Amino acid sequence: MVIPEISPEYVTGKIIDFIEKEVKKSGCTGVVIGLSGGLDSTVVAYLCSRLDDLDVLGISLPVISSNIDAKKIARDIDIRFKEIVLHEILDSISSSIPKDVWRQDKLAKGNLVARTRMSLLYYHSNINNMLVMGTGNKSEWYIGYFTKYGDGAADIRPIGDLYKTQVRQLARYLEVPENIIKKEPTAGLWSGQTDKNEIGMDYNTLDKIIYGVEEGRSINDIAISSDINVDLVKKVLKMHKNTVHKRNMPPICRL
């Protein structure tokens, strides 16, 4: 099974037009991007750098040390840049949490990092009259691989209908540096964290499974046609089912 290739020129034009219309409709004057130095946020930044008459602000939010890649990206595409190192903010929050809990619960701490980042992005969007750009792709959205109200929060999601493999294709068309394209994907929530380890498979495998599901193929057909272990197919379907709440608005008790 092969993921369909996109027409990069068409997709670029479509996304830029989409962003410009949404910003104009909102009455804002620009966009703010959480610039991690990873593939997805870099592609969104490259696209936003092509916007006409709109202010673009890239904000790097590393936990401990400065993000060299994010700085270089902002400089290369000539957008405004700001960096906020989070360790002092996180230290302040952690002082109200029992130390043994703070040290042991890696997932909760990682989610706190993601939500702190988004709080700061929305603060800067408020004071600059900007929209917050989502940088998540279709692959991550399908399996719920994002933090609810963290990196999953945004005003618009420009690349939300592109598989990760298609984002890479678009990146090459936009002339994103090869070291960014080949960089090991990570949310940067803790030391040594990688997308592949968290998801349990690489994005090429994940994308083939999701594409097969969207084509209406059976579990066995997806596994056989893509030479993928059937257990991985079942795992992706389970992740999708278990994360429905992340993709939907909170339910309301109707009276």
Score class of each variant (00 low, 15 high):
C28T: 14
I180F: 07
E175H: 12
N67Y: 08
I180H: 06
M118T: 03
I159D: 06
S139R: 10
K82N: 01
T194F: 08
I252S: 10
S92K: 11
G200E: 02
N248Q: 03
V167R: 05
V31P: 07
L35I: 07
N126Y: 15
V244M: 08
L189D: 03
V2Q: 15
D52A: 14
V113H: 11
G134R: 11
D202M: 05
A171L: 11
L39K: 03
R117I: 04
L57V: 07
L39C: 01
D105S: 13
V2I: 14
L237M: 15
D195R: 06
R115G: 02
I127K: 09
E215I: 08
Q166G: 10
G58H: 01
A74Q: 02
Y173M: 03
L107C: 00
G13K: 14
K246C: 01
P185G: 12
R75K: 15
G27A: 09
E140F: 03
L174V: 08
I252W: 06
K72F: 03
D155R: 06
S96A: 12
L189N: 06
R254W: 14
K183T: 13
S49K: 12
T165C: 15
Q104P: 00
V44R: 05
L47R: 05
D76K: 11
E88M: 00
G38A: 09
I77K: 05
N248K: 05
K82P: 00
F18H: 10
D76M: 08
I33H: 07
I3Y: 03
I209E: 02
A154D: 01
D195C: 04
L61N: 06
L131N: 09
